[in-house]
Design a protein around this nucleic acid. Structure first.
Lengths: 191, 191
DNA sequence: TTGTATTAACTAACCAGTCAGTTAGTTCTG
DNA sequence: CAGAACTAACTGACTGGTTAGTTAATACAA
């Protein structure tokens, strides 16, 4: 079986699981090779080194995030719920983000910054057109939404165990998040 | 200079910096010894191993957190601001928490769980006595406050760079957090 | 048969933990 | 109070195992 593309794909798949579980430092290249069912050297042929492999995966996953979650400034509670669902359904990805944050070797995150700036601008416009309230600055609103929506993932600084029981009723959390975000973004309107 | 207590303290200090920067896996015992200005073997005399050293530090820091931040169910916006100030002023500690979460070797966190349960009970009582609103479940309120208050630290899943500019005006963030928490906990009262 | 995919064996560096031994300080004894 | 006996603090050198990355040789497909 000789198939360059398939081999590359299997490396990426195994590496995603490995990096998500152990981070960059903790990931073992031998283990990735074994789980991918390929020889370790293939990793060094398809990717420069461990760090590059990680960067490739992070890039790919981030692109996926921005593609799969629609940003709707006119419906921020709905957006928050979408982020929440995505985060709860993709714990591997959340862990990858956490690792890239704390191990601080991340590169090429300009895409992330761009996506952030665009959202802040959209929120500003929504405020000016009266779609949402002006009680809070746009960047504050965005940060609040993103952290609120990911509170029940590995991102919670006090541990997921902190409030894991709530995950037994995902719909209740969805409702709570939508309501809380609504209070914040519609503060000052129709009140 | 022979002083067991001082030596132990210097190890803990250097280890805190090391673990905060590199985590458990990434921490280097040799580096801790060098920065503490002691012989590496002393670490193994005073502490069983690297993991035990980490656990000791985590325990100590968590105790400090619970001691230094008063929980006031009758003034949750104030509590949130206190958590925010503490988090912003103790980035090392926030990193330590993040490492202990993601590297999942943490032990002896019953103290943390107890502190959490107590707060949930207090919030429930506050709701029943009409001090705060019943729009959200107690555990939801607590989780929301904790993550909101730590959104501008390493805990932010999308990176601190996500909204680092806001940290230039800490007072504005404090006000925003207090206001947002107020909207959530007083929803349904005096409205 | 030519070049690409793949492999096994190897290397150099690193690192947690150990160990045999030394030095500083304290207690006991005559 | 001298100095021997003892204890606690500390040191430097080492080891066994691990790991990222390399190299040289082999299998295969066109």
């Amino acid at each position: 079986m000789r198939n360059a593309e398939a081999t590359r794909e299997r490396i990426l798949e195994a590496a995603m699981a490995e990096f998500s579980a152990f981070g960059i430092q903790g990931a073992r290249v031998d283990r990735i090779a074994e789980n991918a069912g390929i020889n370790k050297n293939m990793i060094y042929i398809y990717f420069k080194n461990k760090q590059t492999l990680f960067n490739t995966i992070l890039q790919k996953q981030l692109t996926r995030v921005y593609k799969e979650i629609d940003f709707t400034p006119e419906d921020l509670p709905g957006f928050a719920v979408r982020v929440f669902d995505f985060a709860v359904n993709n714990p591997e990805l959340m862990r990858l983000l956490a690792w890239s944050n704390i191990e601080q070797h991340a590169e090429g995150l300009s895409e992330r910054d761009d996506a952030h700036s665009m959202k802040v601008i959209s929120i500003t416009e929504a405020q000016n057109s009266g779609l949402i309230g002006k009680a809070f600055p746009p960047s504050f609103i965005l940060t609040t939404i993103m952290t609120l929506a990911t509170s029940w993932t590995i991102a919670n600084p006090f541990g997921l165990a902190f409030d894991s029981a709530s995950l037994n009723n995902v719909q209740a959390l969805r409702d709570g998040i939508a309501k809380a975000v609504g209070l914040i973004v519609y503060a000052g309107i129709e009140a």
